[in-house]
Structures are given as structure tokens and as C-alpha cells.
């Protein structure tokens, strides 16, 4: 279950893939990523990212410009890695003990398809339990996945929490 299944395409072109197969492969990748996050498999999750990766949780709207406005989280690849390394110290107090997590990924739609990249839309609902209590998070997600050596990798993950204009509790797990 841990390894991704290699995606067989003609000439490494996602556009040549049957739409049902593309959707299936995308869904399997999203479920894989969700399981790594839910289980705090920090190294496994970190390894999904491409060098030009952007991990983004906007604030105060679904599409607020992260280059001029505050976001909850707007990490480039090096900051993603810092985030992971902080979690791995064992002294990231807000994740010591770790949140108990289970998330559902649903409503998966395929957006733009290029030869080696695909844009994906999905909804997520995450149940979190920690020392404070239970919190439910709901988001409309947007991913950009890149096909590299027959596997998808993360180029961009945007998590637009539906209530991101309101006060929110600490969000310290991998969302």
C-alpha cells in the first residue's frame, strides 16, 4: 500500500491516457497523500514534493493573492522542508502529542491536462482530535500534479478552508 502504482502512458503523455484511467490514477495519488498526512508520515509526505512546489492555505477568501495578502500558510519547497523538520524534532509542542486525524477526499474532478501535468479539484473534510478537543476542517482543494518517471508528484497544493475568513484554531498538522 505504501508504494505508488506506476502510471502507464503512451510517450509519457497524460493526454493520451483514457479519462477513466487518469481519474483513477489521480484519485489513488490523492488518497495516498491523504494517508501520509493522516498518519504523520512526515518523510513520506515531504518526498512527494517537486522542487518548485507550493503549499498554500489562503486566508480571507478562496483566492486571496498570496503575493500581497496574508495567507495562513504559503510555503515554497524549502519552507515545506523546514515545516517537516520542525515536526520531526519531537518538540513541535502543538503536535506533541500528535493530532489524531482522519480525512475524506471527495468530489475529485480533473481540470486542465497537459502532457506531464494535471490540475485537480477535490473537497476534503478532516476530523482532528487533540488535547483541546475535536475540530472539523472543510476545504476546497486544488492540486497540480506532475508525472515524473511514471508517478505523480506534487507541484502545488492549495487548501481553501471554507471558513478561512473567520477565527480558526491552530492548524499544525499536514492539511
Amino acid at each position: 500500500m505504501t508504494a505508488q502504482i506506476a502510471i502507464a502512458t503512451a510517450d509519457n503523455d497524460l493526454r493520451a491516457l483514457d479519462p477513466v484511467a487518469l481519474h483513477h490514477n489521480v484519485a489513488q495519488f490523492l488518497f495516498h497523500e491523504a494517508r501520509l498526512a493522516d498518519s504523520h508520515d512526515y518523510d513520506g509526505w515531504d518526498a512527494l514534493w517537486e522542487e518548485d512546489g507550493i503549499y498554500w492555505v489562503p486566508a480571507n477568501g478562496m483566492d486571496t493573492d498570496p503575493e500581497t495578502q496574508m495567507s495562513v500558510l504559503y510555503d515554497n519547497r524549502s519552507r515545506i522542508h523546514v515545516r517537516i523538520e520542525q515536526l520531526k524534532t519531537g518538540r513541535r509542542h502543538t503536535q506533541t502529542p500528535r493530532s489524531e486525524l482522519a480525512r475524506l477526499i471527495s468530489n475529485i474532478e480533473i481540470g486542465e491536462v497537459a502532457a506531464a501535468e494535471v490540475t485537480v479539484f477535490a473537497n476534503s473534510m478532516i476530523y482532528e482530535d487533540n488535547l483541546r478537543g475535536e475540530t472539523v476542517w472543510a476545504a476546497r482543494n486544488e492540486y497540480r500534479l506532475r508525472l515524473v518517471n511514471g508517478n505523480f508528484r506534487l507541484v502545488r497544493k492549495k487548501i481553501a478552508l471554507v471558513n478561512n475568513g473567520k477565527p480558526m484554531f491552530t492548524l499544525s498538522f499536514l492539511v
Partner: peptide, 19 residues
């Protein structure tokens, strides 16, 4: 954005202490 707010490297831990 890196330091503060709900996901901040600093403030998420301060806020854990508050609770």
C-alpha cells in the same frame, strides 16, 4: 506568514501553551 497565525512556526506553539 512563516512565523505566526494558526500554522506559524512560532505562534502555533505559543498558542498550544496558552491552552
Amino acid at each position: 506568514m512563516g512565523s505566526v497565525g494558526p500554522a506559524g512556526f512560532l505562534l502555533a506553539d505559543d498558542t498550544e501553551m496558552y491552552e
